[in-house]
Nucleic acid binder design. Structure first.
Length: 480
RNA sequence: CGGGGCGUGGCUCAGUCUGGUAGAGCACCGCGUUUGGGACGCGGGGGUCGGGGGUUCGAAUCCCUCCGCCCCGACCA
């Protein structure tokens, strides 16, 4: 009899999410620090896997890691008009230190464009100093009204890339390169999360940016989650912080800058894309533990034989598979099966006395939970079989998520259809409305334009709201 | 910030209306039996009842006050 420790998705999707976070032992709400969480080993291990895969891609695309201060002089934040408006309400300030009031308060970084802008202006003199391609892994703080583990926390961990270029075309190329080669590639290839690449509308873009691009994913309740953003900042920050360079013709020019980030929110995307009512599901390429081996025995004699087989089977796995042998002797096998399923380990191998005799093992795949995903296979060729299975699971998860998104997306021709469709997923619509129209729709439907997809149909249509003819299609959805 | 709910062993909660020796289940510890889908028996430890003040012979329970957390709405990676 399974214990019901996880609320089903059908009953309460919100509660299900919180149950997964707790039961998979990913994180705990830090009730003593408003809006913050503690990452527990399982949650942090997933983040480390994400971090590694992203960091590799960031470096492959020519960037270097650096680290800037946590505190930013308050006046810096005030320098770029749109930026101030965007961030002022959610900034935490340090006004007192060393037992004295500070002459100028510091803000705890909500993002680092301003302090990095200050230093870039010192470091950049000539076009020969460009492009400047830096990234930092750090924590930032935004005082949010409502928080949820991973999806929205007051303090969060992310990477923020900051680059400077000689002209708009190079800045734009950088912005798009990150979007495609780093973020979308990581999301789809490693996380098995299909994403829509698009441009943000004026309402939704980063405060201070010229243009913001994003990858948007669909969660299992049909809502959208912005999984990453890449901004072409134009010359806005360069002008505010006087980031200038001398060009070939000995003329002083403002640089063009970009910034881009993904955060621990990706863990939320992971949970809400793949997991089920049995617990977390982690795609094999991301899983800190890909294979768990559960030995089964009744007495010391059996234990010895079983463990000998387990060690023989796993002897070649080091450096090939990320695995764990669960030889805890105070827990029943059934308990372990459920526990590892809860924690999302992609493949489980069971080795019992019968397997020792028959030269077999039981192999279970996490993407098909319970007994249905379990079968008995020969010990011979097990490593290859597992590697093939891991790859099959990776593909199956991506395809399942993609199918789900397609089934919950629809083209809408009228505002009435739009209202209905955003209740169940993404609504694709022709759009020629204004920012004010967009806000009105948000008030009426709670849905926003998630993005203007980079893939456009190319054929004209009628705007869902204004009735004007246009060639531009957008995605409406409710968002996290 | 508005509306609602809740603070009692580690966790989930009962007890509060109607004041009278702080309880249950799970978890934990010990011993024994178990182990192929969340094992069982016996024994055991553990609580300033969110904080402060008041009423009372007596307060988890009634009154005042402060604090915290969760949920639902308006803002956000």
């Amino acid at each position: 009899m399974p214990k019901e420790v996880i609320t089903t998705r059908a009953k309460d999707y919100n509660q299900w999410y919180l149950d997964i976070v707790r039961e998979a032992d990913l994180a705990e709400v830090a009730e003593v620090v408003r809006g913050c969480i503690v990452f527990k080993p399982t949650g942090w291990a997933i983040w480390e896997m994400m971090q590694r895969a992203l960091d590799d891609r960031i470096k492959e695309t020519g960037h270097s890691n650096v680290q800037f201060p946590l505190l930013i002089p308050k006046s810096f934040i005030m320098k770029e008009a749109e930026h101030v408006d965007g961030f002022a309400p959610e900034v935490a300030e340090v006004t007192r230190a060393g037992g004295e009031d500070l002459t100028e308060p510091y803000v705890i970084r909500p993002t680092s464009e301003t302090i990095i802008g200050h230093f870039y202006s010192k470091w950049i003199r000539s076009y020969r100093d460009l492009p400047l391609l830096y990234n930092q892994w750090c924590n930032v703080m935004r005082w949010e009204m409502r928080t949820r583990p991973f999806l929205r926390t007051s303090e969060f961990i992310w990477q923020e890339g900051h680059t400077a270029h000689v002209n708009e075309a190079e800045a734009e190329a950088e912005t798009l390169k990150i979007l495609h080669e780093v973020y979308a590639d990581f999301a789809e290839q490693v996380m098995a999360v299909p994403v829509i690449r698009g441009l943000k509308t004026e309402n939704e873009k980063f405060p201070g940016a010229l243009r913001s691009y994003c990858i948007e994913a669909m969660m299992q309740d049909g809502r959208a989650l912005q999984a990453g953003t890449s901004h072409n900042l134009g010359q806005n920050f360069a002008k505010a912080f006087e980031i200038t360079y001398t060009d070939h013709n000995n003329t002083v020019q403002h640089a063009w800058t970009t910034s881009w980030g993904v955060s621990t929110r990706l863990i939320g995307a992971l949970i809400m894309t793949h997991s089920d009512d049995e617990g977390l599901v982690i795609p094999p390429r991301l899983a800190p533990i890909q294979v768990v081996v559960v030995p089964i025995f009744k007495n010391d004699a059996e234990r010895e034989k079983v463990m000998a087989t387990v060690h023989a089977l796993t002897s070649t796995w080091k450096g090939v598979l990320r695995f764990k042998i669960d030889d805890r002797d105070n827990l029943s096998p059934g308990f372990k099966f459920n526990e590892w399923e809860m924690k999302g380990v992609p493949v489980r191998i069971e080795v019992g006395p019968k397997d020792v005799e028959k030269g077999s093992v039981a192999i279970a795949r996490r993407d098909i939970p319970g007994r249905e995903g379990k079968s008995f296979v020969p010990q011979e060729g097990l490593t290859e079989r597992i590697r093939d299975l891991l790859e099959a699971i990776q593909q199956a998860l991506f395809e399942r998520a993609l199918r789900f998104r397609e089934q919950h997306s629809a083209d809408v021709q009228s505002y009435e259809e739009l209202k209905v469709q955003v209740e169940r997923g993404f609504a694709r619509a022709y759009w020629a409305g204004s920012s004010a129209d967009e806000k009105r729709i948000q008030e009426e439907t709670r849905a926003t334009i998630r993005c203007i997809p980079l893939d456009q149909p190319g054929t004209p249509g009628i705007c869902v709201y204004t009735g004007k003819e246009t060639t531009q299609q957008v995605i409406f959805a409710r968002a996290y």
